[in-house]
Amino acid sequence: MLSLAFYLLFLLVFVVFAVYAERKTAAFIQNRLGPMEVGPRGMLQTVADLLKMIQKEDIKADAVDKLPFLIAPIIVFVAVFAGFSVLPLNAEVAGSNVSGGLFLMLAIISLDVLGILMAGWASNNKYSLFGSMRSVAQIVSYEIPIGLSVLCVVIITGTLDLQKTSLLQSGRGLIDWNIIQHPVLIIPFLIFFISGLAESNRTPFDLPESESELIGGYHTEYSGFRWGIFMLSEYGMMLLLSIVGAILFFGGWNSPLVRIGSWDLYTMTSGTVWGTFWLLSKALLLVFIQMWVRWTLPRLRVDQLMSLSWKYLTPLSILMLFICGIWKLWLIS
């Protein structure tokens, strides 16, 4: 319960800084300066944007299906946020005590597709319907590589509980991380990262909400704060998958510093606050890489997107499942 409350507050603060960071990253990659006017070097730009968004008029068109139209953003946000309940914070604060924590998270995340379908259908609008059907097809297709790559890690660690996975990676710092102890996990991490980009509708997979082609995709008809809830859930999904990637592959809340001789840097940087700091900074580094990829790569066409999932990522992740099984058997013998 404590970790869920912390993650709610952290998510809300994170979105404010993430929007600013995204605009600055975009600017530096595109060789310009970004927001500079509002506040010192533009830092209060997101606050100004939030104030503007909250006071916008809540436009409800006449021909929409009332109740599904109003509920759809809430379903998307609740499905994404409920996935945060199984994440640990540090060595003392664990997530929810379910025996299949990781499996539960993947199941609950797949419920956001319902909200997107409701939004697209209730909007009574060609572009919304196209956008939402493409988005649903994309999210459902990329759930398979994500599940299989997570399964590769579960085969090697032997547990579905995220706190136990972090405990198995503690002791000696950097060399105890899953990706360094078991180098066969590098390709599953890449598959996980790419599928995570597709799950949160980020470029290069953001065809459903591409502003230049589909006006707004499934959130065309939404204005003001309801659109803000859709954006909040997109950043929430980015953060959730980054935290899960940090826990599964990069050591969770363990410190990366090693023991050099008798100078015990590892224990010096471990503890309650240190644990939370390490976990969140690894997750924020992955979020930064997601933003970096967004402004570097062009958008994929919808048939390239689907063929990437079904013809390349799924067979590759099945092959990696087999290889991780062999690695685990070799480790045991």
Partner: peptide, 18 residues
């Protein structure tokens, strides 16, 4: 029945309804 609940959400609500 924990695993049954997870499978129900994953397959039924996340698959059949779609």
């Amino acid at each position: 029945a924990e695993l049954l609940a997870i499978v129900q959400i994953l397959l039924y609500a996340g698959g059949v309804v779609i």
